[in-house]
């Protein structure tokens, strides 16, 4: 499998606290990898390193040959990485369509004067973006909400809109920080199924942080386990389930829940 994302010996410190400690892992093309670990294990910090919001003191992260630790957060999208956030980060004052259009921002090359004068060049570019956004709205079945402001939409719908905004930029790698947090069991199942379909349809790689072990095991082909900023395990869900280090050091009671679900 070709490696898409490779993190090597990444160490991130905030003052005296080491949030991420010498972590290395890879995400392959069309692979789904889950990052799990207790709160404060460094999962979100690692996400922020990949999206260039944080600069790790040691190590490097490469994406298709590009060094991410040396780029700026606003150029990540044009490299082919997009993300969703732990607490939904949508543009509340914009409609669903406009939120998706903003996901296309990196593809827009029209300048201010075309925009202010509403020239045919601008109209052509805008129509092109609207078509893409419209296709995403259809794919995610968001038609009823197309022209509604995002602020005030149900939580579950907002989660989908956020995923749509990430996908409409046509990423190769999608980072998702707790995509099912706060959803009901039914909504979770639906989202998991949808993500699986989208992944195959769009040829995506996915890296997700998730606490819900059921979701992780059904989505991820590989799991990376973090604890106190260190990687303690890396393998298939089967391997992780049976890894004595993981069971002893971290999963504990959750491992038993897993056993319970299998029956």
């Amino acid at each position: 499998m070709t490696v898409l994302l490779e993190a090597k010996n990444v160490t991130l410190r905030f003052g005296g606290v080491t949030a991420v400690n010498d972590v290395s892992f890879t995400v392959g093309a069309n692979e789904t990898v889950a990052l799990i670990g207790p709160n404060g294990a460094g999962k979100s910090s690692l996400f922020n390193c990949i999206t260039a919001l944080y600069k790790p003191q040691v190590g490097n992260i490469s994406f298709m040959g590009q060094e991410l630790t040396k780029t700026s957060p606003d150029s990540i999208a044009s490299l082919g990485i997009s993300r969703t956030f732990q607490n939904i980060e949508l543009f509340g004052g914009l409609t669903v369509l406009e939120n998706l259009l903003l996901g296309r921002h990196q593809h827009l090359k029209v300048n201010l004067f075309h925009a202010m004068l509403g020239t045919p060049t601008w109209v052509k570019s805008e129509v092109e973006q609207i078509k893409r956004a419209e296709a995403m709205i259809e794919l995610l079945e968001l038609q009823p909400y197309r022209d509604r402001r995002v602020r005030g939409l149900p939580y579950g719908v907002q989660k989908i809109v956020e995923i749509g905004r990430a996908l409409v930029s046509e990423p190769k790698l999608l980072l998702m920080d707790e995509p099912v947090a706060g959803l009901t069991t039914d909504e979770k199942d639906e989202l998991v199924q949808r993500l699986g379909e989208l992944k195959n349809e769009l040829g995506l790689s996915i890296l997700l942080v998730e606490h819900d072990i059921r979701v992780v095991s059904s989505l991820a082909e590989r799991i990376v386990v973090l604890e106190y900023g260190r990687k303690i395990a890396d393998g298939t869900p089967e391997q992780i389930r049976n890894d004595p280090v993981v069971i002893a050091a971290y999963l504990g009671e959750e491992a038993q829940t897993l056993e319970g679900q299998k029956k």
Partner: peptide, 17 residues
């Protein structure tokens, strides 16, 4: 749109490019 995006969710606007 980008103006409003920066107001509503700066981080998400940034990662969108």
């Amino acid at each position: 749109r980008a103006f409003v995006a920066v107001r509503d969710a700066e981080l998400a606007a940034q990662t969108s490019g």
